[in-house]
Design a protein around this nucleic acid. Sequence first.
DNA 1: CGGTGTGAAAGTTTTCACAGCG
DNA 2: CGCTGTGAAAACTTTCACACCG
Lengths: 243, 243
Amino acid sequence: MTDQRPIPGEIPSDATVPKVVVNRLSLYLRELQRLESAGQATISSGQLGALLGFSDAQVRKDLGFFGQFGYPGVGYRCDELIKAMRDILGTNQLWPVVMVGVGNLGQALLGYRGFVRQNFQIVAAFDADPAKVGQSYDGITVRAVEDLPAFVKEHAVRLGMIVVPADRAQEVADRLVAAGVDGIVNFAPVTLTLPPQIQVVAVDLAIELEQLSFAVTSRLQMAAGAEPSTASDESGPETAPPA
Amino acid sequence: MTDQRPIPGEIPSDATVPKVVVNRLSLYLRELQRLESAGQATISSGQLGALLGFSDAQVRKDLGFFGQFGYPGVGYRCDELIKAMRDILGTNQLWPVVMVGVGNLGQALLGYRGFVRQNFQIVAAFDADPAKVGQSYDGITVRAVEDLPAFVKEHAVRLGMIVVPADRAQEVADRLVAAGVDGIVNFAPVTLTLPPQIQVVAVDLAIELEQLSFAVTSRLQMAAGAEPSTASDESGPETAPPA
DNA sequence: CGGTGTGAAAGTTTTCACAGCG
DNA sequence: CGCTGTGAAAACTTTCACACCG
């Protein structure tokens, strides 16, 4: 509804967008959604950046990859920018997701409401353990992995989540790809070997803690004379300046 | 034990190490540990890189930030390199961790064995809900958040995990910092505002899925004529070439 | 004004290429 | 030989700075 902006943010003509930019896009969107719920109608690149620990220029450059969304002298309209970001990230449409592996973590993820917020829906869970098949968790009945290909095809599922132990992950990934998914979130602590057209995002909780233990350790040693031994940023900038 | 290498990999004299390098270090370590269990004694930069989808030069440059670990003509000895990496990342020592928020996800993380592998141990869990306090999960009894400062001080805990809903996360983060932790893993989908000396790693599961939906969407559009619209890499390179 | 969009400059990370070593 | 370690070049990302707009 309402008016479209000058060059509505469709996909970049041909320029390639760095992954780190797409990651920040998600952070902008998350913040914008919070601001809109709080009743804020517009925001400037400087304000948005400050909330996340980025510069105003970076926010504008990032958005510039996708189009022109702002109003000089005013900033960005939250509602418009949210819609544009969701179009870009693909979350204006509902994404059905299949999960493989219904252990502790898998069960927790089945109950996690945060996915729904961004239009992801876990539509089925699979497990190799016959004792688990038929059980229900948060309204989802566990199916046998053998049923994966049929389900994925029938429901046009494009995304899968791997929540099995490390030694089973590659086999499960191969099954997901054979079944036809295009993208995988891998919670198992192994690197998957897959055809390059398959998109993979890895989440390794032990590695996240390791990054912290390094940062915390080297900050101490820094006290012993030198400079802080880490620069740049990755997944979640977090730690914005204490406003 | 056994002989130390030429310039043993201690902390970089003063050069700052990019975060992305530290992240790859964790991936190298994970792979090395797997290789060693499989009985492999040495590995070259090219082999290690190939397993993770990196170039040989990148592996050598990354290691070069911390010292000289290799043997020309041979490669790296897995056992030595593992020890060096763990020294650098800080995981040769045991890290006690406190968790705040014992909902679905928190309970699952309490039962997650993957942390132990890298020497992290969740030593206590806290929740604001009086109904949860006193309950036990995986041998850990839930405590009242009020007891956090005393516990952190008494057990010299330096790391905390936030597993509460978004609207409680900032308050919990402030409590953790007041209690004295130096680093935080934040699973809540909000950006925390904290003093800059506090290290924060953010894990937002919805954002991971969003990165996938973007990648999967733009790969499709790529079929419509242009170049792939993403470059570089972030958290987990994953998807190594199908060996 | 206050703020966007964007080329050009600065800074950072990756790749190249090769001397040197066991 | 095969492979490391490392300067130098290339590629990429961020910051700067300013024309332009409402």
